[in-house]
Design a protein around this nucleic acid. Sequence first.
DNA 1: AATAAATACCTTGCGATACAAGGTACTAAA
DNA 2: TTTAGTACCTTGTATCGCAAGGTATTTATT
Lengths: 112, 112
Amino acid sequence: MAINAENVKSQMRKGYLEYCILLIIAKKPMYVSDIITELKEAQLIVVEGTLYPLLSRLKSSGILAYQWQESLQGPPRKYYELTDDGRQFLAELEEGWEEIKNVVELIKNKNI
Amino acid sequence: MAINAENVKSQMRKGYLEYCILLIIAKKPMYVSDIITELKEAQLIVVEGTLYPLLSRLKSSGILAYQWQESLQGPPRKYYELTDDGRQFLAELEEGWEEIKNVVELIKNKNI
DNA sequence: AATAAATACCTTGCGATACAAGGTACTAAA
DNA sequence: TTTAGTACCTTGTATCGCAAGGTATTTATT
């Protein structure tokens, strides 16, 4: 119920997490651990419990597809990649992100 | 369940809505209709059902305070303003926002 | 051969919150 | 007295990140 800065920062993250994940997968096919590592390098901490359901949703929406791939150490991995629809979708998110940056700038600069 | 661009854009908006509202109130005390108008001018559409609970939460968290003020037409209005804690809080959100912009830039620019 | 460790995958339950829809109350004009 | 306009607020629904816990496969150790 109570509001604190961490809480709100976490809310902020919700919004653009999907965008960041698609940006990462767009570069090359990746499986969950890869993605988490990439995000962590960009200072964005995400856990498995967040990522698996999200990837499943993106898959059933036709934005991502995956291929099983053998691993040298341990069980096989699901490598996710963008579909054509997914690239279209990512382009729309790109627009959305630019819009949001614009909105914040507009509000900040008004009456200054 | 299905994911579409509008859905995700709406998710994105959730994250920074609180930030935008505080930016607006920081300039001068405002009541709900004022705030909605300001947001709309910046292309951010928000409805009453979103705003009232949000302002209540911010008030009970000590981030906002309000004063009743007579109106020339109709019932009195609640004018919200930032408390000292609220200004501190807004400063933290400012940091959070800069961090997020950084993360996205980092991810975009990596391996290009 | 049996066990343990490492590495994958996934699900369940919870809390937070935007939004649609609906409700209450006050003021002023018809 | 009724209607219109303008405030305020609440309830119910859907979504989603995250903590916690569970299952399966491979490899190393005993």
